[in-house]
Amino acid sequence: MAEQVALSRTQVCGILREELFQGDAFHQSDTHIFIIMGASGDLAKKKIYPTIWWLFRDGLLPENTFIVGYARSRLTVADIRKQSEPFFKATPEEKLKLEDFFARNSYVAGQYDDAASYQRLNSHMNALHLGSQANRLFYLALPPTVYEAVTKNIHESCMSQIGWNRIIVEKPFGRDLQSSDRLSNHISSLFREDQIYRIDHYLGKEMVQNLMVLRFANRIFGPIWNRDNIACVILTFKEPFGTEGRGGYFDEFGIIRDVMQNHLLQMLCLVAMEKPASTNSDDVRDEKVKVLKCISEVQANNVVLGQYVGNPDGEGEATKGYLDDPTVPRGSTTATFAAVVLYVENERWDGVPFILRCGKALNERKAEVRLQFHDVAGDIFHQQCKRNELVIRVQPNEAVYTKMMTKKPGMFFNPEESELDLTYGNRYKNVKLPDAYERLILDVFCGSQMHFVRSDELREAWRIFTPLLHQIELEKPKPIPYIYGSRGPTEADELMKRVGFQYEGTYKWVNP
C-alpha cells in the first residue's frame, strides 16, 4: 500500500466541504435556525453545542446559521458558553472563530407547556436576519415526558411559513410498544414523516454505516452471507464503567431499553437485511423493517440478565456495585447486563442465532459485530482449526478484520490463527472521521433520513421486546451478580454456547 501524504486539518475539512456542497440537498446560502429545546441540560452542553461548534469551526454548516437555545432556566448566552465550552476542545488559535460562533447564538427562556412562551420564541426567531423565511431545525434534547406539549406548541407557534421545518427526537422513544405508539401517533398528527428525525446516534458511527458497503459492494461476501456458512452472529456493546452516581436515570430504563432495543437491534438489521433497491432512505429502511418483521418476540429462556457488584480487589469506582450508587433505588432489580438470542425467521437466516450482548462495568470498552462461520467440513488438521470470524469493530479503534487459519512457519503443516486486517487509523491517516452527532446533524440539514429511525421500524423493535420488558417488570427477577471489570455473568457464556457459538479464547485482536 502506497504511503499517504499527511494533510493538514484545513485540507481534510476542505475535502469534506467539497463532498457536502456538491450535493443538491445542502442549501449552503439559505438562512437556517437550529433550535435546541432543553438548552440547559446535560445532553445540550456535552453533545449538541459542542457538535454545532465543530461543524461551524470546520465550515460545514450553511453560511447563515443561527443557534437558539430554549429552556425553562433563566440563562444568558454567557451562561450557555460557560457550561458548554469546556466540552468544545477549542484551541487558543480558534479564539476569534469561537467569538464568531457565540455571536450567532441567542437564548430564550420559557415554559414547555405555555403557548405564550412559544409565541415569544417565534418572535425572537423572526427578528433574526431573514428569520421569518429561514429553515428551522428543532432538536428535542428533553425528557420524553414533555415531548407531547413541546411538539404541539412548536407546531402551533414556531413553524417557518416559507422555509422547511424538521424536528429531531432523542431516544428513548417511549418505554414499550404502547407508549411508543402513543408518542408516534401524537407526533405524526403534527408533522409529516419526512419532517421527523428520530435519532439513534449509533447509526451515525462510521463502521455501522460501513456495514452496507461491506455487504453490498464486495462480491466475495454475497455468496457466504447466509445460514449455510454463518453459524452465529454476535452483536456486542461493552462499557468498562458503571453508573457513577447517575444511576437514578438509568434505573428508569435499564440496559435493554438503553442499548439493546435500539443500538444493537439497528446493527442487527444492517447485518441481516436484503440488498435495498438503492441507497435512498426509504429503500434502506424498507429492508430493515422486513428483517424486524421476521423476528419473533424474545423468549425468556433465551435471556440472561445481570447486575454488577463491587470488586473487592478493585480501586475507586470498581469497588462499588450498582446498588451502592446513592441515586439507585434500594434493592433495585434493574439489569445492567443483558444477553438475548433472537432468530430472523426467513430463508437466508433460518436457524442462525443472533446474540445481542450489552452491559456496564465490564472488562473493556468495545462495540462490534462478529460473524462466526461454520467449521470446515472434512477436517484434515486433527481438530487444530478454529472457526473463521469476520469482525466489524465499531469502537474504539474502528477496524474490519477476518480471523482465519494460516500455516505456522516451519517444517510442518501446523495451522495457527491469524488475521486479515483493515484498521482505519492506519489505512486512512488523512481522513477526519466525523463524530456520530456531527454526521447525523449534517444529515438533518441535508434532509437525508437514511440513518434515522422510521415509525414502522420503531414499532417493530418495541413489538419484539415489550413482552419481555413487561414480564421483567411484573416478576422482578433478581439479576445474576457479576463482578465489576469482569466479562459479565458466566451464564451468558453458557447461553451463547448452547445456541452454537464457540468461544476459543486463544486469539485476541490487537490494534496495530
Rank of each mutant, 00 (worst) to 15 (best):
A6G: 09
S8I: 09
T10R: 15
G14Q: 15
G14V: 08
G14L: 09
G14M: 11
E19R: 11
F21M: 15
Q22L: 15
Q22I: 15
Q22T: 13
Q22G: 09
G23M: 15
G23E: 15
G23Q: 15
D24W: 07
A25D: 14
F26S: 11
F26D: 10
Q28T: 08
S29M: 09
D30R: 12
H32Q: 10
I33W: 09
I35A: 08
A39V: 04
A39P: 04
G41D: 02
L43K: 01
K45G: 05
K46Q: 02
Y49N: 02
W53D: 04
F56C: 03
F56L: 04
D58K: 09
G59Q: 07
L61V: 11
L61K: 02
E63L: 14
E63I: 13
T65N: 01
F66V: 09
V68Q: 05
A71N: 03
A71W: 05
S73E: 05
S73D: 00
L75G: 08
L75D: 06
A78Q: 14
I80K: 00
I80C: 07
S84N: 09
S84A: 13
E85K: 07
K89G: 13
A90V: 15
E93R: 13
K95T: 11
E99G: 11
F102N: 04
A103N: 15
A103M: 15
R104F: 07
N105Y: 09
Y107R: 02
Y107Q: 03
V108I: 14
A109Q: 13
A109T: 15
Y112T: 05
D114N: 13
D114H: 12
S117P: 11
S117K: 08
Y118N: 04
R120C: 15
R120N: 12
L121E: 01
L121R: 01
N122A: 15
N122E: 12
N122T: 14
S123V: 14
S123G: 15
H124T: 12
H124I: 07
M125L: 12
N126Y: 11
N126L: 15
N126W: 07
H129K: 15
L130M: 15
L130E: 15
G131L: 08
Q133I: 14
A134P: 09
R136G: 04
L137K: 00
L137C: 15
F138C: 03
F138I: 07
Y139L: 06
Y139C: 05
L140D: 02
A141V: 00
L142W: 00
P143L: 02
P143M: 01
V146F: 05
A149D: 13
T151N: 09
T151D: 01
N153K: 14
H155L: 06
E156F: 10
S157W: 11
S157G: 12
C158F: 07
M159T: 14
M159A: 13
S160E: 11
I162Y: 14
W164H: 08
I167S: 04
I167R: 02
I168R: 04
I168M: 10
E170R: 02
F173S: 05
F173T: 00
G174V: 00
G174S: 03
R175A: 09
D176H: 05
L177P: 00
Q178S: 15
Q178M: 14
S179D: 07
D181G: 10
R182M: 12
L183I: 14
S184D: 08
S184A: 12
S184T: 15
S184H: 06
S184K: 04
H186D: 08
S188A: 15
S189A: 12
L190R: 13
L190F: 09
R192L: 13
D194C: 10
Q195G: 09
I196P: 02
Y197G: 04
Y197L: 00
I199Q: 06
D200K: 03
D200Q: 05
H201C: 03
Y202F: 08
G204Y: 04
G204D: 03
M207S: 01
N210Q: 06
M212K: 04
R215M: 00
F216W: 07
N218S: 00
N218A: 02
I220V: 14
G222V: 09
P223S: 10
I224M: 13
W225S: 02
N226Q: 08
N226S: 13
I230G: 00
A231S: 14
V233G: 03
I234N: 13
L235Y: 05
T236A: 06
T236H: 07
F237A: 07
F237S: 06
K238N: 00
E239A: 02
P240C: 09
P240Y: 10
F241G: 06
F241Y: 15
G242L: 02
E244M: 14
G245T: 08
G245C: 11
G247L: 06
G247P: 01
G248F: 06
G248R: 06
G248L: 05
E252C: 10
F253R: 03
I255N: 00
